[in-house]
Amino acid sequence: MTTLAEMALAHALRDRLPALLGGAVTLNALAPLHGGSGQENFRLDVAIDDGPLAGRRTFALRGDALQPTPNVVSRALEAAVIEAALAAGVRTPRLHGLLPDLFGVGLDAYLADFVAGIALGPRIVRDPAFAPARARLPLQLAEALATLHALTPATHPALPIDRAPFERHLDPVAAALQWFERTLDALDAPRPAAEYALRWLRHHPPASREITLVHGDFRTGNFLVTEQGLSAILDWENAHWGNPLEDLAWLTLRDWRFGQLDLPVGGFGALEPFLAAYVDLSGRPIRPADLHWWAVAGNLRSALSAVHNGRGTLEIERMATPRRAPEMEFEALRLIEVGP
């Protein structure tokens, strides 16, 4: 069923795509994509009559949401991050330009290649057809992260993604602690388990304070996978200046293993070979205690986001998340109990 909003969007796209794509464009289909529910995502099937992109093509359109998740970057900034990642060699969909104000005043969108693959975690970790992909993914993801983490405030001084508390001059551990404290203080009710985790993080700081570009939501569900392996990294809206171990730990969180608890890397890989590949490719040694700190921090972040994201919404998926927070709080305290 086509909604009025989709009809209006199709109308706006018919007007604006020719200039963006450099030729006459017929919009054959427009369909919402539900992955990455924080933003407005659509699939576009078009025919381009002339110009460098002439032919039948499929694109992904990603626009600013009217009610964005707090502390994520805009589509314009996300596009700048993607361009930087692409230039460095990270597999992520190629962009075809920005459409300012497409979803309303100040609500921009960008057009990207529609890349083959699935992002559904349960299928990626269980479907027998994806067994060859699961064998390849750990090394491919280690490669993607090593490439991404070579981007730093020094190599990309003009990348404008600084936002409090994730600023290039600020210690990434202090920034994370500040974010936890602010988010906890903004909640309506105290959460002693989260306070315990925050206290533990303060009293056991990691040694590594390196700052690089961090994807910020690097996990199963945010990359596209074909039966052959990784096809593209998606959802860069949480990109920030931070510590690279944040991305590595996030990929191993229990929630993103989709039930495959004995396979810490995304529910499909063992930890040691993944870390060995990353260390080898990045030249960056990893202290187990530091990775453990970021795993506790990741669970705390996930718990607080779950509580926060369920407020002030009538979307059932978001309304359901606060009751999931105890899972992440339990996991943070369990990790503290068992140690690195």
């Binding site: 388990a193 315990y196 999931r324 105890p326 339990f330 305290l333 109990e337």
Partner: peptide
């Protein structure tokens, strides 16, 4: 920590009984 883990286990019996 033991008390908090106990409280979380009780909540998880409600919200995620298979956890």
């Amino acid at each position: 920590r033991g008390c908090l883990l106990g409280g979380l286990r009780a909540e998880l019996r409600l919200y995620a009984p298979r956890f």
